[in-house]
Amino acid sequence: MGKFKDIIKKQESRKARNDVIFIASLLLVVLVLACVLFFSAEEGNTVRVTVDGRLFGEYSLLENTTVEIVNGDGYNLLIIEDGKAYVDTASCPDGICSSHRPVSRNGESIICLPNKVVIEIHTVTNSGPDIAV
């Protein structure tokens, strides 16, 4: 009986050790991914706004503008200022988008789930006639 208990105890401690290894490796993966994403991101130059999956409009990040995104009852006030884009006021109840920090790096986004609004930073390389610098 004592031997049986010993085996169980050994198994428990092995599992506890595996737990620590598992959690540590998960955290490591997240950390590495975060570093890769953070250092690979560069400043974008275009703000793309989509509402409910459809393109709402594209705006240059280099010019200061104010865009009113209206979709039914929902509205979000997007402000582009000094190369950064942020949502100033919004009709959504949670206010997640308006409390989001300003975005400027390529791939960064502000997402408003209640209004289905997605604001994304992109880098458009060929500056066509629509983006006059």
């Binding site: 998960l26 997240v30 994403l37 997402i111």
Partner: peptide
């Protein structure tokens, strides 16, 4: 969320969410 909103960028949230999930 990626499928419903048709936005793969939501995957960035996974970084924060996995830490809080742990």
């Amino acid at each position: 969320a990626m499928v419903l909103l048709d936005t793969p960028q939501i995957a960035y949230y996974m970084l924060v969410l996995s830490v809080t999930g742990i």
